[in-house]
Design a protein around this nucleic acid. Structure first.
Lengths: 350, 350
DNA sequence: ATTAGCACTCCCTTGTTTTGAGTGCTAACA
DNA sequence: TGTTAGCACTCAAAACAAGGGAGTGCTAAT
């Protein structure tokens, strides 16, 4: 995929790059005359025209209609992102003061991240909260609320807290509760959520087996709390930025994109896809049809994975028109990714 | 406000009503010829024209431009909603099978409510989660997670659970913790959140005064957990329905409305306003400028308050074009309001 | 009081023309 | 052989013109 098409001469590459960059700036189809001035190689428009005809044959650019200039195809953008674009890598680590302010709750930070990203790029953005299947259990406790209710509290790494009310038919004695708590803590402490299997729970039941009925019920509830995947939280911002780009502003497109942002389902798919992809910390670019979200077939989607610690991974992403400022977007995304990665270590919990 | 303008003859009212109903259906300015057929009173278009001229002078209708038909003004809609509209009250209680399915989590129910409402009406909808300032405390407990962390768990009426990790400098003895828990439970149990004032906390501090420093810190934290208003959760659905109405579909309007739905702040204001209004269980209609949310000055907003029990009130609302089907909307809203009101009693916690 | 009739207004649609940016091709050129 | 000037051609978009039609206000007749 990244292999350069050998049929492309140096000059064609320069011209293609010029076409794309010009189009990114203006959003207008770019013609041969414009290019003959724009490029450093001094060629007449006629020559450029010949080259452009070739580039069109090869599928990198096309005309929206006869007698119009050319615009990049998806294939063209792909080549640009993979090869042509100059990444200003060196700057990334040094420059850029923090985008995020501290905040004590993770949710706040993530919502803020989405906002910052949107205002920095003028595109629509999303940030998914980390899912924590590889997280470990730090503490577990059952307490009697009243005659018929027990509250179970579970603290995971990163100070994620889960809890639930468990309804019990009969009152449990203090003693039983104490034993149960002991048992749970000694057995489960330090284990990752993945490790706490149904088999393990079954063995616990046996060990605790005295009033098997109630206790069995309680343990089942505990297992459920631990395993129930909190449905993925996704924060969005700047959805209306898409109105800044005419190619996405018609009713049809706007409606599709915005509803994908409201009904979060599609974004969840996007996150899943991103997290599943092999090379983790890289920035991923989906151009047009490449996007896993069908509603975004006319957009480009750029995503990155961050890690709050201990396998708690989340995704940050930007959705905009295909003619998006890839350089800037990828740089900003990388910066934010770093900040989020860092946040857990430097500021474990305020 | 509800007083009928005495200058309006019976006939004018009929005509006005006809104009509005016709406009609600078609969305087109309605002219005198159309009306002379549409209305039961057999009048020629000329007569109707005279009446319409009067109605325009009185500010109930206006022309978008000379030589166009008339459309209702905000004042016209107001009159319609207050007086002209026929509410089919009787049906409400009997008919209508349940819109909501049971679900164990409140959030799910509310999200579903928003969805149902949107698909039933073809407008944009919002449902706010109840705020619980008048809720009472059922149970409170502090537990040691590790050397430096305590987790505080608080259970409120309706099984709302709040919790937080508290960082402590030094380890607290089991004994101290036990005493603290006793103290907290005996003092605070059954109190409403409003009642737990800073003064009360100060008195508690004195009573517990032994290791004043750490304990003071912990008690402050507890007070904070109790009082920190969970930021209002608002569920939305069908935002993109606004694209079905041309008068709201231009970039400008669409952008304003949609961003109000994304950045929830304005919706929160709307909820606050609704909840603050005196007559609680009534349906409220805001037409155009009447809306507390400035971004919705070209819309109509219809809201209702539901009560999950014990002063836990939330708001459901519909946002659409001024020419909205008020009857249907208000009826649907009322039905849903009843269902939500009932849900807590019939199905306290599944 | 109502209505028929008429002149007038103004938006909207439709068709026509003009403009201009851009292309492809051919022939001349270095 | 690669490059360029020149020219005819295309097509979208803008500008313009004309007609139709829905609607109004006013006047005069019923």
């Amino acid at each position: 995929m990244v292999a350069v098409d050998t049929s492309l001469s140096e000059r064609k590459l320069i011209i293609l790059k010029a076409i794309i960059q010009n189009y990114l700036e203006t959003g207008e189809p770019v013609g041969s005359r414009t290019l003959s001035k724009y490029t450093e190689l001094n060629l007449s428009s006629a020559t450029i025209r010949n080259e452009m005809a070739d580039l069109e044959d090869l599928g990198y650019i096309f005309q929206p209609h006869t007698s119009a200039g050319r615009i990049p195809s998806d294939k063209g953008y792909r080549l640009y992102v993979d090869i042509l674009m100059e990444e200003k890598e060196q700057e990334i680590t040094e420059r850029e003061d923090a985008m995020l302010e501290k905040a004590d709750k993770v949710e706040k930070v993530l919502q803020q991240a989405a906002r910052v990203l949107a205002s920095n790029t003028n595109y629509a953005t999303m940030v998914s909260a980390p899912v924590n299947s590889r997280n470990t259990l730090k503490f577990i406790q059952l307490s009697q609320v009243d005659q018929e209710q027990i509250v179970a509290v579970i603290v995971l790494g990163g100070n994620v807290i889960k809890n639930k009310i468990i309804e019990v038919g009969e009152t449990l004695s203090n003693e039983t509760l104490l034993k149960l708590n002991m048992l749970l803590n000694t057995t489960l402490n330090g284990m990752s959520i993945d490790q706490i299997t149904l088999g393990l729970i079954a063995r616990l039941k046996e060990q605790a087996g005295i009033h098997s009925e109630v206790i069995g019920h309680v343990l089942d509830a505990v297992a459920e709390i631990i395993h129930v995947e909190d449905d993925m939280k996704i924060y969005t911002s700047g959805t209306t930025n898409i109105f800044k780009y005419p190619e996405l502003s018609d009713k049809q497109s706007a409606q599709e994109i915005i509803s994908a942002f409201e009904e979060k389902q599609q974004l969840e798919d996007l996150v899943t896809e991103t997290l599943a992809s092999e090379n983790d910390h890289a920035i991923q670019v989906y151009i047009g049809d490449e996007s896993p979200v069908k509603n975004m077939k006319d957009c480009s989607v750029v995503t990155a994975t961050y890690e709050l610690g201990e396998g708690m991974k989340g995704t940050i992403g930007i959705i905009g028109p295909k003619r998006m400022d890839y350089e800037h977007v990828m740089r900003t995304l990388k910066t934010l990714q770093n900040e989020l990665d860092a946040i857990y270590n430097k500021n474990p919990k305020e």
